[in-house]
Every structure is written in structure tokens, then in C-alpha cells.
């Protein structure tokens, strides 16, 4: 075979500022592309190789570890203000491989592959014998707890009827026997007090997401639920291109007139907390 010129990569320190810059661009990429769950933050840079790229630039080949934060992925809170989920809360780690192009001082992600995994139950038990462990999202108690919590939230709502987007986290808590759940919701074009058939409600064109935390406590002869939801500001409708390429103006939702105006934020707040509803 013809002799190929040796491929040469540049070794770089994992804590080198340039490496960290590339890793932070990679973490932002994760959080911008996650479809659900929680934002992740950089925990450790495992490996880095810097390959030359013809005709110009360099490709940073990175292996990074991340940790899940407590911020839901659609929460507008800046990542720097998001708390890292602690070991006692049953932490979740991400392992990612990235290729990040550096050209003209700019970093661009070329390739990303990540997977996340929760800490082992044994490790959680080591640091906190009585802490709750993560439960499967399709666990019947989890689904029931979310159902009861969302019903309680909609029952007290004076505005839109909110429907479930995803169950993002759940734990069985031993004492008192209860189920702790976190889930995402979105406003629909129905008025909560007037809903007869939730299946007829549609998500608003201008998405308004919310994030709820709830505890369903079992007791003799029944159950108690406490739920608190944080509603995020509405997200503008992405412009839809007409066949000839022109952008369509925001389609107004027909139910807008039926709904009370969304709570005006003054000054605009990123989120409105509703609850706890017991």
C-alpha cells in the first residue's frame, strides 16, 4: 500500500483553557438539543485529541462526563444557576463523545454521542440509607401520582387546561410512604374549568410549558397530593415558510378569545409559580 503520511494529532491538557472552551460548547450543544429531561453540566473532561483539518481549522476529539442538573430542559434558568442533582437525590451522569471544529476562533460541534445513566442504588444507599430511589416512569404508582397531581392542578386553575408532556423523574419515598414525581406540562386551547373531554384540547400554537413537582402520600383510607407548578413564558411560534418561501404571520389560536389573557409579567419573569395545591 502506498505510504500514507502519518496522521498527527496535538496532545492537549484536559484542563487547558482551550479544551475547556470546546467542552463548554459541547455541553451547550447537548442542552440545546435535548428533547426532554434535565439540563446537564460539565463535570470532567476525560480525553482530548486535537486533529488538524484540511484546508484549515482543527477538530477537538473530546470525551466528557456530565451531571444532570435539577433544571428541566425547557426551563429558561441559565445553566450556571442550575443546581447539580446531588448523590442523595440519586444523581444521573452523562458520558459523551464529541468532535468540535475550531476554525477562525469559533467552535462548532460536528459530532455528538451521549448516553446518561443513574447512579447505582447501592451507591445512593451508601450516602443516604433512607433516601428515595429513582422509579421507572411507567411504574403504576408513578403514573397514578402524576395523574392525581395534574388533575388537582387543573382543578384549581383559572386559566388554560394543562396537559402532560412528559414524566421526567420519579422516586418511591419509604417514609412517609409516598411517591415523588416531576413532570412537564403544556397549556392547551381549553379553559380548565370548562373541560369536558381533554382529548379535544390542543396545545397552543405559542407553546407555554410548565414544570411540576408533586408528592402523593398514601394514608389510611386515601391519599394526599401536593403539587407545585412553575409556568414558563410562552415560546414564540417558529416562523412557518409558505410554499413560495415567505414566512407566515403567527397563526392566531382560535381559542385565544376564550382564554383569559396570560398573566402579564411585569417585569417579565421567566417563570410563574403556581401552588402548592394540596
Amino acid at each position: 500500500a502506498p505510504h500514507l503520511p502519518g496522521l498527527v494529532y496535538r496532545e492537549l491538557n484536559c484542563d487547558d483553557p482551550e479544551t475547556e472552551q470546546a467542552a463548554l460548547v459541547a455541553v451547550d450543544y447537548i442542552n440545546d438539543h435535548l428533547l426532554g429531561g434535565y439540563k446537564h453540566t460539565l463535570n470532567q473532561i476525560d480525553k482530548v485529541k486535537v486533529w488538524p483539518r484540511r484546508p484549515m481549522g482543527e477538530v477537538f476529539e473530546l470525551e466528557i462526563d456530565t451531571l444532570e442538573t435539577t433544571c428541566y430542559v425547557r426551563d429558561p434558568t441559565p445553566l450556571a444557576n442550575c443546581t447539580v442533582r446531588q448523590l442523595t437525590e440519586h444523581a444521573v451522569e452523562g458520558d459523551c463523545d464529541f468532535q468540535v471544529l475550531k476554525q477562525d476562533g469559533q467552535f462548532t460541534v460536528l459530532f455528538a454521542k451521549c448516553h446518561s445513566s443513574p447512579d447505582s442504588a447501592e451507591d445512593v444507599r451508601k450516602v443516604c440509607p433512607q433516601c428515595g430511589l429513582l422509579a421507572p416512569m411507567n411504574d403504576t404508582k408513578v403514573v397514578h401520582a402524576v395523574d392525581v397531581a395534574l388533575t388537582a392542578f387543573n382543578t384549581q386553575s383559572n386559566g388554560s387546561y394543562f396537559q402532560l408532556v412528559e414524566i421526567s423523574r420519579a422516586q418511591h419515598v419509604p417514609l412517609p410512604p409516598s411517591t415523588y414525581v416531576e413532570f412537564a406540562v403544556a397549556a392547551t386551547d381549553c379553559v380548565a374549568k370548562e373541560v369536558t373531554d381533554p382529548a379535544k384540547c390542543n396545545l397552543l400554537a405559542e407553546k407555554q410549558y410548565g414544570f411540576c413537582k408533586a408528592t402523593l402520600t398514601e394514608k389510611v383510607g386515601g391519599e394526599d397530593v401536593a403539587v407545585t407548578c412553575t409556568l414558563f413564558q410562552t415560546q414564540p411560534v417558529p416562523p412557518q415558510l409558505q410554499p413560495d418561501g415567505t414566512e407566515m404571520s403567527n397563526p392566531t389560536s382560535v381559542a385565544d378569545s376564550a382564554l383569559p389573557p396570560p398573566p402579564q409579567a411585569d417585569p417579565p419573569v421567566a417563570a410563574l409559580v403556581v401552588g402548592p395545591v394540596v
Binding site: L7, V8, C14, D46, E93
Partner: peptide
């Protein structure tokens, strides 16, 4: 057989071995 191109590491100051520092905690 296709010769595997030899990968040569550029000479330079030895970078401190990776992995880098842990910013929060290790699972």
C-alpha cells in the same frame, strides 16, 4: 493488506495526563 497509517504524536511539552479535574463529584 493496507498499511495502517502510522499515527505520530507531535513532539511538544508533555501535557498533564487526562482526565482533567472533577468539577462536582464522581458517580
Amino acid at each position: 493488506n493496507v498499511a495502517q497509517p502510522s499515527i505520530v504524536v507531535a513532539a511538544g511539552p508533555m501535557a498533564r495526563p487526562c482526565p482533567g479535574r472533577i468539577r462536582h463529584f464522581k458517580i
